[in-house]
Simulated assay, not measured.
Amino acid sequence: MKLKIDVQMSYDLDPSGTVLLTLELAEFPGQRILRSALDIDHARVSRVQGAEGIGQRTWARISYPQMWLGYTAQVEVTRPKVELAPLAHTPMHDLPGETLSFLRPSRFCQSDKFATFVDRRFGDMQGGAKVAAILEWIAEEMIYVPTASNSETTVMETFVDRQGVCRDYVHMVCALCRAAGIPARYASVYGRGVTPPDFHAVAEVWLDGAWRLVDATGMCAPDEMAVIAVGRDACDVAFMETEGPAMLISQSVTVTAA
């Protein structure tokens, strides 16, 4: 599937005018970037490598009190849909080094607090079957509520409230999978069919020797999303970070089939 992406953003910035952006598509397995262009008015731009060597982040130093930017891209997504249940579990001693940090607790995913729950609720399953059961439990227990959380909400609060947005769904997947001994990481993506249209977040789980994209909200299949960046949780892949306050003027994210 080919996807067209169009992002338009406008913010009032603090006097420093320095912004760190994570917007551009990554060179990533299962997707091929056909076109990608980031335009920022009145800005000096430099780029640094993204976390885990995936994608890139953009420093913009803006000599104007407002940031106006547009990002457009076209990407061909070639990754197939994969049934999770038959995928094998990898014993911890056979895991590659790149996965180990995604077994550990992080700022928003206190996975060590869920070991007992995971063992009691999913202890009779392994590998992909366990991940599928975790996703089913999340779908049954959680409600998508746009106003239910904020940038400081942790998975502990989400577990109690059982509601949130894509960010909270991913944190729940990561916490439960890590507690089960399955590496899981946070991925920011552009996804077709996201409602309301916005930057989207999904999880990646390590099964049968590879990372597998899963969307606990059920909005996007793996062949309908394009990866921007990955990290331990939302703090690693925020689409925009500033030194001081930033006030939203307007923002739109559109993802359509090309």
Results as ranks from 00 to 15, higher is better:
Lys81Asn: 14
Gln163Val: 08
Thr242Tyr: 06
Gly193Cys: 01
Arg212Cys: 07
Ala26Glu: 07
Leu3Tyr: 05
Lys130Cys: 04
Ala43Tyr: 07
Val7Gly: 09
Met1His: 12
Met240Tyr: 05
Lys2Leu: 11
Gly218Ser: 05
Ala43Val: 01
Trp59Cys: 10
Leu21Phe: 14
Arg162Pro: 00
Gly191Met: 00
Ser188Val: 15
Ala187Leu: 07
Ser250Cys: 03
Tyr186Glu: 04
Pro245Lys: 14
Lys130Ser: 07
Thr72Arg: 15
Trp59Arg: 09
Cys235Ile: 12
Gln49Met: 14
Met156Gln: 13
Glu52Asp: 13
Lys4Leu: 15
Phe108Trp: 04
Leu84Thr: 11
Lys81Thr: 15
Ser111Asn: 07
Ala43Pro: 12
Pro86Gln: 09
Asp94Ser: 04
Ala175Arg: 00
Ile62Phe: 04
Gln31Asp: 05
Ser101Ile: 12
Asn150Met: 02
Pro245Val: 09
Ala60Ser: 06
Ala201Gln: 04
Gln49Asp: 08
Leu87Gly: 03
Thr217Arg: 02
Gln31Ala: 07
Ala60Phe: 07
Tyr186Phe: 14
Asp208Ser: 05
Asp6Pro: 01
Cys166His: 02
Pro222Tyr: 06
Ala229Phe: 09
Arg232Cys: 13
Leu135Ser: 10
Val82Ser: 08
Ser101Val: 14
Met247Asn: 00
Phe122Val: 06
Glu52His: 07
Thr217Met: 02
Phe108Lys: 09
Pro29Val: 11
Glu152Trp: 01
Cys166Asn: 03
Met156Tyr: 11
Arg104Ser: 07
Asp223His: 11
Leu20Phe: 15
Arg104Trp: 06
Met219Asp: 08
Val255Pro: 01
Arg61Val: 13
Ile54Leu: 04
Pro29Gln: 12
Ile249Thr: 13
Ala51Trp: 11
Val170Glu: 01
Pro65Asp: 04
Trp68Tyr: 14
Ala203Arg: 02
Met125Ser: 09
Leu21Tyr: 07
Asp124Thr: 13
Leu84Ser: 09
Gly218Arg: 01
Ser101Asn: 06
Ala148Met: 09
Ile134Leu: 05
Gly53Asp: 05
